[in-house]
């Protein structure tokens, strides 16, 4: 029932009271519309029901409604219905675009100022449309379309949604060299500073009858620049060695009589090896035959010299290497 102006002594019929009740409960008979429509004064207190397969509008003008008037608007059509400010203002905290089966109440603060209370608030309806889409935000909730295969989601403040799908940054591990052990010292030299970290992998290493341990030096530096802690474990027990200002670091403890059947292996990670501002840190594991037991060693420490590492020497503490391979990798 449209808004009424009642007079003193007026008698309402049961049908009128029922209609007023329905209107107060946002129900009752609605004015069916099938095309864009401009509200008129008589729409105050009524329901407008739009049914259209095309996009339509409800236009709101000033000078027709009083403060406190309301119009219930619903969209039953497949085309979007847009509440459009004509000469009146229309504000909303939701959306002025009503998709199918959305509705809301247009409330007049004054004759020329209205607020539309959208029943489906922004965010209540998903903007996602496609497999893999993500829920994003610019100034409103928005869809981040799924990217191409093998791309990764990357923050980018220049994008409207602050994110983009992009090829992953290059990285990985590169084999720099593969070298066989011979002699009593093996030096890998001219290591380019183009990687972030270095990774050395030693396999199948053994030596002659006097061969024992393997020590490592950087840049052939025999100064007291190696600080490290070493935790060794073997069948007969464990030992912890904290060594500061050493002239090399020991990566394999083999003991004597470590023949072909008792090969050592080890790896050594050297972090941020090309910088010169702080000590280069390293960490590694080694395993060798110590008397009758295999001994594993964990070592971590720092090389305390302000120089980029360009060479690594593996030094037999006694005797000579008989066989074994070291692979040097660059890691980004």
């Amino acid at each position: 029932m449209a808004k009424q102006t009642f007079t003193v002594g007026q008698v309402l019929t049961a049908a009128q009271v029922t209609s007023l009740q329905q209107t107060a409960m946002l129900g009752g008979a609605a004015q069916a519309k099938t095309a864009s429509y401009t509200l008129v004064a008589a729409d105050a207190g009524t329901a407008i029901s739009m049914t259209s397969t095309s996009a339509t509008t409800i236009t709101v003008n000033t000078g027709l409604f009083a403060a406190g008037d309301t119009v219930f608007i619903q969209n039953l059509g497949s085309g979007n219905l847009t509440i459009t400010a004509g000469s009146a203002t229309v504000s909303t905290a939701g959306s002025l675009i009503l998709p199918t089966n959305d509705a809301g109440v247009l409330y007049f603060v004054s004759t020329g100022v209205s607020i539309f209370y959208d029943f489906i608030q922004v965010g209540a309806a998903s903007p996602l449309t496609t497999k893999g889409d993500l829920y994003g935000f610019s100034t409103l909730d928005a869809r981040i379309p799924i990217g191409a295969n093998d791309t990764v989601l990357t923050a980018d403040s220049t994008q409207s949604l602050g994110l983009k799908w992009a090829a992953p940054a290059s990285g990985g591990i590169t084999l720099i060299s593969t070298t066989s052990f011979t002699g009593s010292t093996l030096t890998l030299s001219s290591i380019a500073g183009t990687f972030k970290n270095l990774y050395c992998e030693i396999t199948g290493l053994y030596g002659d009858s006097t061969y024992q341990d393997v020590n490592v030096r950087f840049n052939a530096d025999t100064g007291s620049n190696y600080d490290f802690g070493r935790f060794g474990s073997q069948g007969t027990g464990t030992d912890i060695t904290n060594s500061a200002a050493q002239t090399s670091l020991q990566i394999v403890s083999s003991g004597t009589n470590s023949g072909a059947s008792e090969k050592s292996s080890a790896f050594l990670n050297i972090y941020n090896y090309a910088q010169t501002s702080v000590p280069v840190v390293f960490m590694g594991f080694g395993r060798g035959k110590q008397d009758t037991n295999f001994k594993s060693v964990f070592i971590n420490g720092q090389y305390r010299n302000a120089a980029a590492i360009t060479s690594i020497s593996f030094i037999a503490s006694a005797g000579n290497f008989s066989a074994g391979t070291v692979k040097l990798y660059g890691v980004n």
Binding site: I176, S177, T179, F181, T182, G183, S184, T185, L186, T187, L188, S189, S190, I191, A192, N320, L328
Partner: peptide
């Protein structure tokens, strides 16, 4: 008896030599 093997990892060139006195 004590030799040093040096490998230039950029060129792959390997050299083997005896240790000098200081080494």
């Amino acid at each position: 008896m004590n030799s040093i093997k040096e490998v230039n990892v950029q060129t792959g060139v390997e050299k083997e030599r005896e240790m000098n006195a200081s080494e």
